Structure formats: structure tokens, C-alpha cells
Amino acid sequence: MPDTAESRGESPEKEQPRRRQARGERRIAQLLEAAASVFCTTGYTAASTNAIAREAGVSPGTLYQFFPNKEAIAIELGGRLMHEMRETYGEALTPVDPATPLEEAVDAAVDRLIAFNCEHPVFFALMHGPDIPGRIAEQHDALHTTLLSRIEDVLISFLPAAPPADLTRTAHMCFGIYKSGLELILGHEGAERDAYVQELKDVLIRYLEPLAGDRLGKG
């Protein structure tokens, strides 16, 4: 039996709004995907709604049915990306067993975070641009604060005796190293990208090993 409103005991009047909503959601996804491509290519400042519509293969009028301007598109895209990023760092930056080798912990965290950014390069382009919308900047600042807190949660397993101020400073340094490495990683592809990922891991491990020396000596 065909899957129709009548076969489900529903009226056609209820079915039509759902279909329109589904079409609208697909169109929004199409526009956001196009915006991500344009933002990566030109940056947020130089991007335009006309360029986004052209990339999506629709008219500017169709775009304006869903978004009033470029900022609204960026805010929607940024919000969705930050939601995914929170899930990613929730998996990547969980407290580790004190018996976990430092190298293993660094590998796991870096691999997950790098994979997200390589899958969504627009995240870096949008979040680190000079003229991102204020609402995105505020959300990114909140994300940054939470991310640093999660890094501290991981570090405490390796630096159990570190004073809070030292732990915070170390977390900031790790995050700074990661962000610098990420920009280089995203600028390369293939084997060269893999090599930069390994370089980033090596730098983090060599930075943290002396700080965690006492703990590692007991292992």
C-alpha cells in the first residue's frame, strides 16, 4: 500500500505542510552547504549572498525566502557547527585513566579534533575570521572557555599535583599550540597533512612530558 496521508489515517491538509517543511529544510541545508564553500574560498567578509545563491544553484530571491542577509546565514551555519564541535570535544576531551600513556591521550584527542576540522574546514575559516558576526563571536568565546576547561580536565590526570594556576596556564599553552598547528594542517593535504598532524602531536608530547615527568617516572 502506498505511504500516503490517507493510508496513515491523516488528512491531506496535514500532509502538505509537512512536505513543505521537508522541502524547506532541504533547501536550507543546500544553502548552508553553498555558504560553507563560499566562506572557505573567499572568507566571510568578501562573501556575498549572490555568490552563495550562485553556488547553491538558486536565484537570490530563493535565498532571501530563507535568510535575510549573509550574517543570518553565517549565524545559522556557525550555530550548527558549534553544536557538532561540542559533541566532538565531548568525545575527544574526556578525563582519562591515570594509567593511560601520555602519547595515547594526545593521539586520541588530536585525531578527533583534527578530523572534525578537516571535515568542516569552514569552521576554522568562519570562527577565526576578522569580521565574524558578533553573535558568532560570543558563541565562539563561550566554546573556547568550555574547551579550555575540558583540556584542564584531561591534564589533571597527568599533572595531579599542579597548582590550579599552573594547570590553567598549561591548558592555554596546549590550546595555543593546537590552534597554530591546525592552521598549518588545514593548509595541506594528503601525506603532507598527515605529517603535520604528527608534528603537532610530537610538539604537544614534548611540551607535556617534562611537566608530567614525576608521574611518568612512576609508570
Rank of each mutant, 00 (worst) to 15 (best):
Y44N: 01
A165G: 06
T170G: 10
E6R: 15
I132P: 08
A162S: 15
S180N: 08
E71P: 14
R150E: 08
P130S: 05
I156F: 10
G90I: 10
A195D: 09
L32G: 02
R169Q: 08
D202L: 08
A56V: 07
K179L: 14
R169V: 04
T49A: 05
G9N: 07
F66L: 04
D111H: 11
E104I: 09
I28C: 03
T94C: 12
T145E: 12
M1G: 11
E13Q: 09
P95D: 12
L102V: 05
L186G: 09
T49F: 01
F116L: 13
E6C: 04
C174M: 15
S48T: 15
E25C: 07
D202S: 10
Q139R: 15
V197A: 00
T45N: 08
I185W: 06
E138W: 05
P12M: 00
A35N: 09
M82C: 12
G57D: 08
V38E: 08
R19C: 01
V106Q: 02
S157L: 06
A34I: 08
L186M: 11
P121L: 05
P121Q: 02
E91G: 05
A72I: 11
D194H: 14
E87Y: 14
G78E: 03
L186K: 08
A72K: 12
G217T: 06
P163C: 04
K14F: 00
F123R: 02
A92V: 03
H172T: 12
E152K: 15
I156E: 13
E119Q: 15
L200F: 01
I185F: 09
M85G: 06
D141A: 14
T170Q: 03
R112Q: 11
T41Y: 10
G43E: 03
K179I: 11
R20D: 03
E189H: 15
H128F: 14
G24W: 01
L93T: 08
A125D: 05
F66G: 00
E91T: 10
H144S: 13
R112K: 14
R193G: 05
A162L: 07
A35G: 13
R215P: 01
G134D: 04
L204C: 03
A191T: 14
T145W: 15
V106T: 06
T42H: 15
Q21S: 10
D166K: 10
D202E: 09
E103L: 08
I185V: 13
E119D: 12
R206P: 00
R206Q: 08
L147F: 13
I75H: 05
H188D: 13
L159T: 10
R19F: 04
R206W: 00
H188N: 13
R193W: 07
S11D: 05
G78M: 03
A195P: 07
S11H: 14
L113K: 09
M127Q: 08
G61Y: 10
Q16S: 01
L182Q: 05
G9C: 07
I52W: 01
A36L: 10
G187W: 04
L200G: 02
G61L: 04
Y44L: 04
E6Q: 11
T62R: 09
Y207P: 02
T4G: 08
D194F: 11
Y207D: 00
T168V: 02
D3N: 12
A115E: 09
L63R: 05
D97Q: 11
S149Y: 04
Y178C: 10
A72T: 13
L186F: 12
G43Y: 00
A115R: 11
I73R: 03
L93V: 10
A125F: 02
E192Q: 15
T168E: 14
K201F: 00
K70F: 01
L200V: 01
V38S: 06
M1H: 09
